[in-house]
């Protein structure tokens, strides 16, 4: 492979490349932050054409994810970055996967809209779907804000924000049981709606993961450290001879 074959001009400054990767990720994530409310509205208005547009719109996101990951590997191999530069690239590789997966979940919501076509969703469930959509959008926006601004404190707050989505999700599931019990929705619709709730909840989890990656990028902290610290503590307490 000659220099001319490289998809990315590796002779340019490393930080310039990092900046390009960052911008591409912001664009990818924008497709998700815009996609969540779009899919929510498609679901609530049962707009088939829009649902199809969302499904088709995922292909460019997937292609971009593959391309960007490749770029990251090239930078790792050719530039051998260290310390915070290394963390930036590693964070990018992990975040690309989170964003791409979130895009898939948006598509899943649109597909569910097609599956429940013609079935009326009871008002309370519509309200809860709207709220979950708003929370998921907010979480994803905040996660990307923390990444763009390198704000570790904001990133750490995302986990708490996600509790709101989780509690909405629990209310939503209860409401599905109630609606089904009252005969307002069939089992088929109930299951589709339950899956939809799961998709929003998972998008929230991906936002939390992005937040954790951002904390790692900025401070070197890893979520696994807390678990790892517990394991180490347990091990050391076992190894210690009993007192007294």
């Amino acid at each position: 492979m000659t220099d001319a074959d490289l998809p990315l001009d590796v002779r340019r400054g490393f930080h310039h490349t990092l900046e390009e990767i960052r911008q591409e990720m912001v664009h990818m994530a924008a497709l998700v932050t815009e996609g969540i409310p779009r899919a929510t509205e498609t679901l609530l208005s049962q707009d088939l054409a829009e649902a199809q547009a969302i499904v088709d719109g995922d292909d460019p996101l997937d292609a971009k994810a593959v391309e960007l990951e490749e770029t990251c590997y090239q930078v790792l191999a050719l530039q051998q970055p260290m310390a915070s530069d290394l963390r930036s690239i590693v964070t990018a590789v992990r975040m690309i996967a989170e964003i791409e997966r979130s895009g898939d979940l948006v598509v899943n919501i649109a597909k569910s809209a097609r599956r429940i076509l013609g079935n009326e969703i009871p008002a309370r469930l519509r309200g809860l779907i709207g709220q979950m959509g708003e929370e998921a959008t907010t979480l994803f926006r905040v996660a990307m804000d923390s990444y763009i601004d390198g704000d570790a404190a904001l990133a750490a707050a995302i986990d708490d924000l996600d509790d709101r989505l989780d509690s909405l999700h629990r209310d939503y599931i209860q409401e599905i049981f109630r609606a089904n019990h009252d005969g307002d929705i069939s089992v088929q619709v109930a299951i589709q709606l339950a899956l939809v709730g799961r998709y929003y909840e998972r998008i929230g989890d991906h936002a939390v993961n992005i937040g954790e990656r951002v904390r790692y990028m900025v401070t070197g902290w890893l979520p696994e450290h807390t678990g790892a610290a517990r394991v180490a503590a347990r091990r050391s307490s076992r190894d210690e001879p009993p007192r007294g």
Partner: peptide, 11 residues
Amino acid sequence: DARHGEALVEQ
């Protein structure tokens, strides 16, 4: 240097 939806407009 836009983010979120504005980033799509920038692109």
